[in-house]
Simulated scan of single mutants.
Amino acid sequence: MDDVRLTKLAECAGCGAKVGAGQLARLLEGLDVRHDPRLLVGFDKSDDAAVYQVSEDVAIVATTDFFPPIADDPYTYGAIAATNALSDVYAMGGEPKVALNILTVPQDMPKEVVHQILRGGYEKVYEAGAVIAGGHSIYDSEPKYGLAVTGIVDPRRLLTNAGARPGDLLVLTKALGVGVITTVAKAGLASPEDVERAERSMLTLNRYARDVMVRHDIHAATDVTGFGLMGHLLEMAQGADLDVTLDVCAVPLMPGVRDWARLGLLPAGMYRNRRYAQDQVQAEGLPLDLTDVLFSPETSGGLLLAVAPADASALVGELERDGRVPCARVIGRMEERSGGRRIRLTQGGERA
């Protein structure tokens, strides 16, 4: 098993393999969207998961997510893929209950490697308080693993990425940089400390941030994954028809990622994300390496929360005291729509 380097079997790592937001929108054009009053959130909403109401106080949250290897160790890869898939339910304010495996493997992959991938997934799902009840597997030249997850949420407490209000403060619960570090690791250049830091972040369930946020005045939420901070923030702004002012000095970054970005060691998904979102981002005067990190895809990233300003300090304080949430930073503010570009990047509160 030690001879298998999973990341060498895939062109892209983790959420860096995700179809770009612009291309995805074009692929979905013209599809006949059926309307059902119980479908509270569908694919036409650009949200993290579908939500279907089954009773006055229960709605189903359904999502699926899978990707090629993000780590060489099979157990770690499986655990990260499961953590990432579960995150969409947490981003809606829900609780995962049942998951199904999605697995593709080469026919000659050693049995023990496949077993460890699945074990990583099973143990993360159990940590989430859910169960794996089956799944589907096929042979393919490139390994891929993930989950289809079903959770529940009270419809009255459902969170979407479109509910932000003017004045809401934006709180981020994990540092950025996973996409850059995994790209560097794939090239064999990352230090063990860099890899360990990135994997520890990806392995942290957003369950812990979710369990805190539901006690606060949150108006919108999403998780930061394949579309990068800028792509997911743009969806949040468009969904609420608001603008965003983002303080780039407040955005938490993993150590060294800007140095790697300056060298051009960036995931391919960064360029897709930049092409999609850059026309809506005012970033004049900012270093290119910094904005590259803001556009880079993240795998199993943190939650991005729009919280009422009066409750922001209490939310951040509780997230920090929990001890299981990687970070809790106020990074920006939602504002009334003023025309022009949706996202304005600032430095220390001053517009770029």
Rank of each mutant, 00 (worst) to 15 (best):
M109T: 05
V153H: 02
V195W: 10
E56L: 04
F67L: 05
P96L: 13
P155R: 12
P69E: 02
G302H: 09
L288M: 08
M92A: 14
D108N: 15
P255H: 05
I218C: 00
P106Q: 08
E95R: 14
D72G: 04
G14L: 02
D65V: 06
D322S: 09
G231M: 03
Q280R: 04
G129E: 08
L345C: 02
L103V: 15
T64R: 10
V244D: 08
V113C: 08
H115G: 04
E320V: 14
A59Y: 07
L170D: 05
V281I: 13
V171T: 07
V41P: 01
T183S: 15
S296V: 01
G78H: 12
A164G: 13
T83L: 00
Y77G: 09
N273C: 12
E112G: 06
Q278V: 10
L304G: 01
A62I: 14
E29A: 13
T63Q: 00
R34M: 10
A21S: 04
V54H: 03
T299R: 01
I60G: 00
A81L: 01
M109Y: 06
V251Y: 07
G231L: 05
R262E: 15
S55K: 05
L31G: 05
K124T: 15
Y75S: 06
L24V: 04
G22L: 04
A91H: 03
S141Q: 12
L345G: 04
H216D: 09
G135S: 10
I138W: 12
D73T: 04
A261H: 03
L205F: 03
A185G: 04
G332S: 04
T160C: 11
G177L: 11
P74D: 10
P252T: 07
R119S: 14
A99F: 03
T160G: 13
A62Q: 13
D247T: 02
G323R: 07
V248F: 12
M270A: 07
V224N: 02
P192I: 10
L233D: 05
M254P: 05
E56T: 12
P96V: 14
R351E: 15
R5T: 09
A128F: 02
V257G: 08
L176I: 13
K144S: 11
E56C: 01
Y145E: 13
G256F: 06
D3T: 03
L266Y: 09
A17M: 05
L288A: 14
G256D: 08
V248W: 10
E29Q: 13
V281D: 09
A283T: 00
P96C: 14
E56I: 00
Q347I: 10
V316I: 12
E112Y: 09
L40R: 09
G14K: 00
